[in-house]
Write a protein that binds this DNA or RNA. Structure first.
Lengths: 354, 354
DNA sequence: GTTAGCACTCTGGCATGGAGAGTGCTAACC
DNA sequence: GGTTAGCACTCTCCATGCCAGAGTGCTAAC
């Protein structure tokens, strides 16, 4: 039963691509395989269903569409979506009303930039009705802006690091019994001189040069070492936190009706290693990146698509915002939303750290 | 077809309770309705299946067991689980090996107490193979330990609050163009005198008493107001954060094989209002609390059980750790684990803030 | 009070069959 | 040449019926 080939697999013409687009648009809406009749009825193609069938067969030969079984309509392959995404990538924009709405929301969160990325995830989730993802902006190497030491009890103090990038770090350090808060304050003042604006490597060097005859040299050195260690941990930590919102949206998608599929999506989301890797890749590029189905290395991710964009200042601190949803995703909307939100966050950060 | 009653619904004797316990133990293991034959075979009851059937009928009359359909075995009702939990509540303990394992894990997280509650959730999830829940310890009213002001740019400064309870808060404040870091440091020093050890209400009073002729009185007042507002928000925020881990464990349970049930569980978890309310209730008690199925008010929660315990110092800062799983839960283990972990966290906190 | 025996009931799995949807091919058409 | 009508074919989906298995509830005997 060899399939008869009507035409050698040459380049697909304009009409074929129009039909491919129609199949994808329709499938994204309906989530059911799209037949030739439905296409001619709902999209003014000006040809009969038989002609459409011929073209569908060609598209299938080219690997852009597929067939769940003989007597079913077509569904797009990952390659089909890929083609679709390439063609709409540049033009995808958000409606102005939504842009204003989002701006308004971000305007209301006056305070810490720490909350921006959470807001980004939840905004994206609401608008795209998929899962929204966001990571905090993280520097390649953290710079200390300020150090603080506060006694907690006789033997412990809390070391607070304020980073130039807006983050806070707190760790506990052991102190000798009887060290007063005044001593700690003095030590902190001395350390501030050493560490302000510096990264882990610089600070390590500075700590080594502390003269022995300095008052409390020992304590200063010990806390200094602790600062270095904390910064190093922070730097190495590939992606400290991937915040997600709107997982329930994804759960509602018909492709995840069987709960084992759903489970795979979730274990994928807990696969921080891969997401972290992607964040790295995306951060290096300037614009929106899309990862569709099997383009994702981990098997758990083969049924979802990711639309990610970096934000922040390259070389200083970058984070990522994005969408996770089924491969059957409204890509134009997702791309437009993610692009707009990342751009907005750039604006905000520029404005803040100008 | 009126059901014939063998005996008036008097109190159930010892044997009936032994059988009830056997049904629950068996059902928790197998997740399938338990028949009379399976009971006599697997539990040395010393009576025939017919006798067991009579007793099962009694238990059903008392509302402790139920029947999915005529020819199926028995499954426990929420009331059945409730009885079970009451009888084992006191005796539930963790195996010593696991206790040591957990102690070891907690010992390795030397640094910030902020990470303890996350570790608690993940430990509980691993051991009970359900979802682990934990909230950070939160004071009834936050006390400030220290204030810090760091310039970010010409018009903005970062205000950092270190709370007595171990938490950190950061917000941005507007400053007048040209304010130097030295001025900010001086303002912070002045504020430290005003706020240290105080709560929002006290600080509000102190701010009102700042004399006008103090240098930078204006800025001090503005930042002081901001501190008060930040603290008030923090105090009001019923439950800032409910951290969960091991959701995948719950997803694997056969009762959630249909993804709509799963969805309900998840939307329940996003129902912070109810969880927050529970946290309040539990925090007021001393020991483990169990909420089974329909004992939970929200409809979404009717198919899950919660085992929660408070930790921390009553009157200072309290948080909650716990388990969320199907009502068919290994209660002895869950209760033992939660009790142990909350006790351990108490120990750690006592040790830290002694 | 306990137990053997038995009729009865309900589920779950499996095969059957028809309706519906959609394809692929052929032959006619422009 | 491309396009189209027509039609046989294929596959899913759903309802139906049937049977084995599990477990009950009742009765009558111990």
């Amino acid at each position: 039963m060899a399939r008869r080939i009507r035409r050698s697999t040459g380049p697909l013409d304009h009409r074929a691509h129009a039909i491919l687009r129609a199949v994808i648009d329709e499938y994204v809406l309906s989530a059911t395989p799209v037949g030739s009749l439905a296409l001619v009825e709902r999209y003014g193609l000006g040809v009969s269903s038989a002609t459409v069938r011929n073209i569908l067969a060609e598209l299938e030969l080219s690997g852009l569409l597929t067939h769940p079984h003989t007597s079913a309509g077509r569904i797009p392959t990952d390659e089909g979506y890929r083609w679709y995404v390439e063609t709409i990538m540049e033009s995808a924009l958000m409606p102005e009303v939504e842009q204003l709405m989002i701006r308004h929301q971000f305007g209301q969160v006056e305070s810490a930039s720490e909350h921006w990325f959470r807001l980004a995830a939840s905004t994206i989730a609401t608008i795209t009705r998929s899962a929204g993802l966001a990571t905090p902006a993280k520097p390649a190497a953290a710079h200390v802006r300020r150090v603080d030491l506060v006694a907690i009890n006789d033997r412990l103090a809390s070391l607070v690091l304020v980073l130039r990038e807006g983050a806070l770090k707190q760790v506990l350090v052991n102190i000798e019994s009887g060290t007063s808060q005044d001593t700690l304050t003095a030590v902190a003042a001395r350390l501030n001189g050493l560490v302000t604006g510096r990264t882990a490597t610089d600070i390590a060097r500075a700590v080594r040069r502390i003269p022995d005859d300095l008052p409390e040299a020992d304590l200063i050195r010990r806390v200094g070492d602790r600062i270095v260690r904390t910064l190093r941990e922070y730097d190495v930590d590939a992606v400290e936190d991937i915040f997600s919102d709107g997982l329930l949206n994804v759960m509602g998608a018909p492709e995840f009706a069987q709960s084992d599929k759903l489970r795979r999506v979730f274990s994928a989301l807990e696969n921080r290693a891969y997401l972290g890797e992607l964040v790295g890749t995306v951060a290096a590029t300037g614009d929106v990146s899309v990862f569709i189905g099997h383009e994702n290395a981990p098997a758990d991710m083969r049924e979802v698509a990711l639309v990610l964009a970096p934000y922040g200042q390259p070389g200083r601190a970058v984070g990522v915002v994005g969408v996770l949803g089924p491969t059957r995703m409204a890509y134009p909307q997702a791309i437009g939303t993610v692009r707009f939100v990342s751009g907005l966050m750039n604006e905000l950060i520029d404005h803040l750290y100008a």
